[in-house]
Amino acid sequence: MFFFENRQIVTPGDLLAEGDYIAGNNTYKEGFRIYASRLGLVEYEGRTVQVVALNSVYIPSPGDQVIGKIEDLNINMWTVDINSPYKAILRVSDALNKPFRQQKDDLSSFLDIGDLILAKVVAFDRTIDPILTIKEPGLGKITQGQIVRVSPAKIPRIIGRKASMINMLKRETECKITVGQNGIILISGPSPENERLAILAIEKIAQEAHTSGLTDRIAEMIRREKSARL
C-alpha cells in the first residue's frame, strides 16, 4: 500500500509504503513499513520505493568522476578537496606515468596547491579516505573554463534521463560541460557569453530540480536568451 502520489514532496519520517516492498535510496525499513529518511520527492517504481533527495552531501563512490582542488602536498601524495566530508588522496603512482624520483623530482611541479583536477574515485569505504586517480584519458589538471557549484543532489537532474538534459545544454550553448558527481561542474565554451548562458541554465536547473517539464523549459530559456543577446 502506498501513502503518497509519485513525485510528491515527503519529509523525514513520513510513512511511504506498507507491505512487501524494497526500500530504495533515502528510505529505511522497519518491519513491513518503509519510511523516508530525507526531504525529497517520493518515487514508486515497481516494488521499489525511493526518495530523490532535494539536498545532500557528496559521499564518494568508486568510479565517480569528480572535480577537486589540491589542498596540500606530501612527500609522495596530494590531498584533494572534493566537496565531501572526506579528504581525498591522490598518490604519485596514480598521477604520473613515469617513475617518480623522490630526491630529484618536485611534486609541486606537476600539481601545486590550488590547482583544480578532474579525477576518478578508485576506492572508498567507511574506514578509508577516498583514493583518486588521474591516469586515464581525459583526466588531469584543469587549465581553462569556469566552475559552477550546485548541491550534489541535483547532479542527476543536470545530467537528465539518458543524459538528455546535459546533451541539450551542450548543443544549445556550444560549451564543453564536464560534470563532477561531487556537485562541481566545469564549463568551457567558445566565448564568455556562451559560458555565462550555460551557468545561468545550470543554476536554474538546480533551483527548479523538483519541477516537471524542466528540459523543455530550459531549452526555451536558452533560445530566448540567445536571441535577446544577438
Binding site: N26, S37, L39, A53, V57
Partner: peptide
C-alpha cells in the same frame, strides 16, 4: 537538519 539533507528516522 532536514534542510541540510541529513538522513533522519523522523523529525
Amino acid at each position: 537538519l532536514a534542510d541540510a539533507g541529513i538522513p533522519m528516522r523522523d523529525l
